[in-house]
């Protein structure tokens, strides 16, 4: 579903943010992308979803190169940023209709999905209100509804649990599991290692732009906690 091949990213000031990263995420995978602040997680994610241009390496989504056909790739995936800045001049429902229009979701389909997800997140009544009146968590919920709404094959998330209340966090985790069980793939970054260990079947850890380890969660952690494994790995390298 997602292949990252020898991907590197160099900032305009010459600093290498990511160095020769290669990863493969298959359908059904719930893939955690772990690393310290400034390790290159967000840069990688932004390149996958088409925000940042890159020259070295390639990123392939469902068999299509992001470099060659960005629009086709974008149709197959959804992105949830760590800090969801949304259009403050729109109401929640106006924003979701806007996303629905861009992905050409039929009226019946969008009605069904919006109502389902908005009730799940207890956001239905607030959809009538302006986004400018939303809290961080409400914006995060709205961004999640917009992401799930068009049934993407690949979901890319940057710190999806930041700002969510405990109930919403639980619902998101359930939705993520369900999404992958139904054949979708999720690639997400997080600093909450306990959640990553319980939720994910695959993991990759990077440090200063270089991949330290990747593979099955169980094989990497064995009987240890992910936190211990992570601390050990980043101190060794």
């Amino acid at each position: 579903m997602l292949e990252i091949k020898n991907y590197s990213f160099i900032y305009p000031n010459g600093k290498k943010a990511v160095n020769n990263l290669s990863l493969e995420i298959k359908s059904g995978d719930l893939f955690a992308f772990i690393g310290h602040n400034g390790a290159g997680k967000t840069t990688t994610i932004k390149s996958i979803v088409g925000i940042l241009d890159f020259t070295d390496g390639d990123i392939v989504v469902d068999g299509v190169s992001v470099k060659e056909n960005t629009i086709k790739c974008k149709k197959e995936m959804a992105y949830v940023p760590d800090n969801p800045d949304l259009y403050n001049s729109l109401t929640g429902i106006q924003y979701l209709n806007f996303i629905g229009d861009i992905y050409r979701i039929s009226v019946n389909d969008r009605k069904e999905k919006i109502e389902y997800y908005a009730h799940q997140f207890e956001l239905y009544d607030d959809l009538k209100s302006s986004i400018s009146s939303y809290s961080h968590g409400m914006k995060q919920k709205l961004a999640l509804i917009a992401a799930f709404m068009h049934s993407p094959k690949l979901l890319v998330m940057d710190e999806p649990f930041v700002g969510l209340d405990p109930k919403a966090t639980y619902i998101v985790k359930q939705m993520m599991k369900e999404f992958c069980e139904n054949g979708g793939a999720i690639f997400f970054s997080t600093h909450i290692l306990e959640v990553a260990q319980k939720l994910c079947n695959k993991i990759a850890i990077i440090k200063e732009g270089k991949l330290i380890v990747q593979g099955d969660m169980e094989e990497i952690t064995k009987d240890n906690s992910l936190e211990d494994v992570f601390m050990e790995l980043i101190e060794d390298v």
Partner: peptide, 10 residues
């Protein structure tokens, strides 16, 4: 600011 919940295709 409150508006109605509507579904319209554009």
């Amino acid at each position: 600011k409150k508006s109605k919940i509507y579904y319209k295709l554009n």
